[in-house]
Design a protein around this nucleic acid. Structure first.
Ligand SMILES: [Mn+2]
Ligand SMILES: [Mn+2]
Ligand SMILES: [Zn+2]
Ligand SMILES: [Zn+2]
Lengths: 139, 139
DNA sequence: TCTTAAATTAGAATAATTCTAATTTAATCT
DNA sequence: AGATTAAATTAGAATTATTCTAATTTAAGA
């Protein structure tokens, strides 16, 4: 009875099932672990450590493969910011972040909570892709 | 008569002279090259390639050392964003950026050109360090 | 000119991520 | 169910940006 019917997990598993990706043991296990507590931010290394606390082991290569595939299929979102590591985010909506330089942890800022005005026009010939706001904080 | 009295170069050299850093041939040369065209954004590797087009060679280790020291002494500013490489910026004022994912080039957005309102309050116990806006664009 | 702390350098080390190529497995097809 | 095969998993090697090490050189002051 290990935490059945968690809506975050089920939603992510549904997206996986509707994608062309195969439903493997590793992918199912990863989704169960990553989504069990709702919105989270983590690096590949975080996931590797967390996953391998359990009896079932997953290789680091597979963790990278899965996180990247999940991102491509919008089960996760990747967040790249100051620092060398890529963060993955269970929140795939458009939103912004606090980043604490002391703890190296991200937290969400709802897109609707920030109003950006007066943005200069996009350079000629280019098109807008996204606007990312990072609010850096410290302890 | 190699481009004497360029105000950008002179300003940067002045900051260097007022700092505790020694005035070496390599540092002077770097400042002459980096500041000759006003505001620029570049990676260490960019600088390495550019510098070594001239007869006077500077090692990659020295380029990293200098760029980092310059940043510490506010001759340059570092900009870290999506992607693995650190960018250095001759504009040390607070400002924001366009980042073109196709060309991997940065361009400036004046801080005063962007109005950010409704930012949620900083998490308890933390203090604000900076707000960075990156407008991602493509060709 | 002498002294010495700081700077430069080549090359080794590191760290996050991707790649390679061998093996296993999920899903489909008799 | 058993056979087939493209996709997935994996260990370990490779890659890339950056930092470190330790030997040598140099700037700046006495
Ligand atoms: Mn969240
Ligand atoms: Mn600029
Ligand atoms: Zn988030
Ligand atoms: Zn800039």
């Amino acid at each position: 009875m290990t935490m059945k019917n968690n809506p975050h997990i089920n939603k992510a598993l549904d997206v996986l099932k509707k994608s062309p990706l195969k439903l493997t043991t590793q992918r199912t296990r990863l989704i169960e672990i990553l989504f069990k507590n709702g919105d989270q931010h983590f690096t590949a290394e975080d996931v590797y450590k967390e996953v391998n606390k359990y009896r079932y082991k997953i290789s680091l290569a597979t963790i990278y493969n899965c996180l990247n595939q999940f991102t491509k299929h919008e089960i996760l979102k990747s967040v790249r910011l100051s620092g060398d590591k890529v963060y993955f985010d269970t929140n795939t909506e458009r939103h912004h972040h606090f980043f604490c330089k002391s703890t190296e942890k991200l937290s969400d800022i709802k897109s609707s909570d920030v109003k950006i005005s007066n943005l200069p026009k996009i350079p000629r010939g280019k098109k807008l892709e996204s606007v990312e706001v990072v609010v850096n904080i410290t302890d």
